[in-house]
């Protein structure tokens, strides 16, 4: 079963989804930073990263299917680093708490733990936000308005482009008489010739529409904003505390 990118947005039904959008973005960013900052090569660091990730996934209510897909993607991305371990054991420049195999394993373990935690926290944060929430949240934060508008438009257009990409892939599969996997490979190899010109044309037309509709001049706060309430304040303080613990763990290691 596949989980597509646009299905994950706003799919979370956990307690975090009831917070103001800006709180969800802030908390997600703080937990992400905390997990990357915390040392992966000490037992407290490992426990801290695992616990923070698990709590945020629970709070976001990330659906099981999306969780499995993200975890599999993370493992596929970061496990191959373990293939380098035999080479690193023999190499001269192994850094880590131990030497030999222990030292060599420490490097890919750190990459795996940080990478997987970061990916899952990002996915869980996305699951708490619809595209409208993202706009509302970004505009409520001290973030340049133009950048927020562009970012929101990129996310919105990405949804549309995914359908376009699927249509291009389907056309290639049919015209090339190939299966799904071969079509995917052909799709990737022909990105510059087929997909990119389409996207450029599309970007041109969307820019024209934005100009005609006055999108660039409009202050997108016209759609209204959620105010911060007591639960939001509690979560922001907690996120700050998590960040502080991560910083402490990192400093203790130095």
């Amino acid at each position: 079963m596949r989980t597509s990118w646009h299905e994950i947005w706003g799919s979370g039904r956990g307690p975090a989804a009831r917070l103001a959008p800006q709180t969800r973005i802030l908390a997600g960013a703080a937990f992400f930073a905390a997990c990357l900052m915390s040392p992966a090569l000490s037992a407290p660091g490992t426990v801290f990263i695992t616990a923070t990730t698990a709590v945020w996934i629970y709070a976001s209510g990330l659906p099981g299917r999306a969780l499995r897909s993200s975890a599999l993607l993370g493992l596929a991305m970061f496990l191959p680093y373990f293939l380098l371990v035999p080479l690193m054991v023999k190499g001269p420049s192994v850094t880590g708490p131990g030497t030999g195999w222990a030292g060599a394993l420490a490097v890919p373990w750190g990459i795996l733990l940080h990478g997987l935690a970061g990916l899952l926290i990002a996915t869980a944060t996305i699951a708490t936000l619809t595209a409208s929430d993202l706009r509302g949240g970004l505009l409520a934060l001290p973030f340049p308005r133009v950048l927020a508008a562009i970012l929101v438009q990129i996310v919105h257009q990405t949804f549309v482009l995914l359908s376009e990409t699927n249509r291009v892939a389907a056309a290639m599969a049919v015209r090339g008489g190939s299966g799904r996997w071969r079509a995917a490979v052909r799709m990737l190899s022909s990105l510059p010739r087929v997909w990119l010109p389409r996207i450029l044309g599309r970007a041109d037309r969307v820019a024209a529409a934005m100009e005609i509709r006055g999108f660039a001049e409009a202050d997108l706060r016209i759609f209204g904003q959620r105010v911060i309430r007591a639960p939001d304040a509690v979560v922001i303080v907690l996120a700050g505390a998590v960040l502080a613990v991560a910083a402490t763990l990192r400093l203790r290691l130095l």
Partner: peptide, 12 residues
């Protein structure tokens, strides 16, 4: 516009 996707700029 010819293609409505080009001019729909908001998620909802």
């Amino acid at each position: 516009f010819n293609l409505p996707d080009d001019q729909l700029l908001f998620p909802k």
